[in-house]
């Protein structure tokens, strides 16, 4: 039996950061009140700022008038400083509302509401399915240097990255979980009732959070680490001329050419010669992130005729067998 409880979502890094925490009961109301106090404090600071700024502007106007009238000079230290603009709180808390909080083990249930007499209310009975992820892992978004607008995904650890020749690519790693497609879509796409219909046997990887920026990617060959790459910001610079049209360069916030700009993406850069490799993501303590291992192989572009000839080998063997058998039988019947 569940009772209504107040709850709120707390976003410590802001609403758009995606990570939230559910607060229940007094904690929810308390946090929401804290948020309201912080917002009120912010607006108060804004008011104070506006007033201070108005005073500043007035004082500057007086000084300018005085300078224009009297020619008096002021040093920089003598000039009033503009007031500092207050920053709003980044963190966010939703207003505490009441709900029945369901936290059940995996399974299928039926829920319904009951009145104060303990009787089930008609029409409130609903099926409830609690499901869990089947697997977790680390997926990669791979941005090829030659086609940076067409990244590819590698969600499953059984997938292999195949390259042709020397390739440069940029990897972004993120944590992921595998869910039943039908169940997950039904839960997340409420506005599309048919979203997961007919996909009860299918599974999908769902990207969750990006790995921390201090995660490194190790490249191994023959079981030994040959290279280690770290996350860096990169910028896609348009180039004049016909070739490629752009260039991906490392973003330096201090450099003049990047003044006022932001990085196009943050990723780990890999430059690989043809060969066979293994990559894996390691955290700041050097521990390999589970599910992050991938094989990378450079394919040899074999002329197809070689493969077709290989395919015809069994037929050749068969012809030899049949001809030899026929000859043996003819010899036997002749000698008999």
């Amino acid at each position: 039996m569940l009772e209504r409880q107040p709850y709120a979502h707390f976003y410590p890094d802001g609403f758009y950061a995606g990570v939230s925490e559910i607060l229940v009961g007094d904690a929810a109301e308390k946090k929401f009140q804290e948020y309201r106090d912080a917002i009120e404090g912010y607006w108060q600071a804004v008011n104070d700022y506006r007033q201070a700024y108005a005073e500043y502007e007035q004082r500057m106007a007086e000084i300018l008038e005085e300078v224009s009238q009297t020619g008096k000079t002021y040093t920089e230290d003598e000039l009033p400083k503009p007031p500092e603009q207050p920053s709003p709180p980044i963190w966010y808390v939703t207003e505490a509302t009441e709900a029945f909080i369901v936290n059940l083990p995996v399974g299928e249930y039926v829920i319904r509401t009951i009145d104060d007499q303990g009787r089930a209310v008609d029409g409130t009975e609903k099926k409830l399915k609690v499901f869990d992820k089947r697997r977790t892992g680390v997926g990669y978004q791979i941005i090829p240097e030659s086609k940076w607008t067409r990244p590819v995904q590698s969600d499953d650890a059984s997938q292999i990255l195949y390259l042709e020749g020397t390739r440069t690519m940029y990897l972004k790693a993120f944590r992921e979980s595998e869910y039943n497609q039908h169940d997950y879509l039904k839960m997340t796409s409420l506005e599309q009732p048919l979203a997961g219909a007919g996909a009860t046997s299918a599974y999908m990887w769902v990207h969750e959070t990006e790995v921390p920026n201090d995660t490194k990617v190790q490249i191994l060959q023959g079981g030994k680490v040959v290279m280690e790459a770290e996350y860096k910001p990169y910028y896609v610079k348009q180039t004049p001329g016909y070739a490629l049209g752009y260039e991906i360069v490392e973003f330096d916030p201090e450099a003049d050419e990047f003044a006022g700009r932001r990085p196009s993406f943050e990723a780990v850069k890999l430059e690989l010669e043809p060969g066979t490799y293994e990559i894996r993501a390691v955290d700041s303590s050097g521990r390999v992130l589970e599910g992050s291992v991938r094989d990378i192989r450079s394919v040899n572009v074999v002329p197809m005729w070689q493969l077709y000839v290989l395919s015809l080998l069994p037929l050749l063997v068969g012809l030899v067998v049949v001809v030899r058998r026929r000859r043996t039988r003819v010899v036997k019947s002749v000698t008999a």
Binding site: P144, S154, L161, E164, V302
Partner: peptide, 22 residues
């Protein structure tokens, strides 16, 4: 081999391809 050829072509055309056990 037709499928092998298709996989090879996919890699050579895009330079990079993600496949599980081609």
């Amino acid at each position: 081999m037709l499928f092998v050829r298709s996989n090879l072509k996919g890699v050579t055309e895009n330079g990079l391809m993600v496949m599980a056990n081609p």
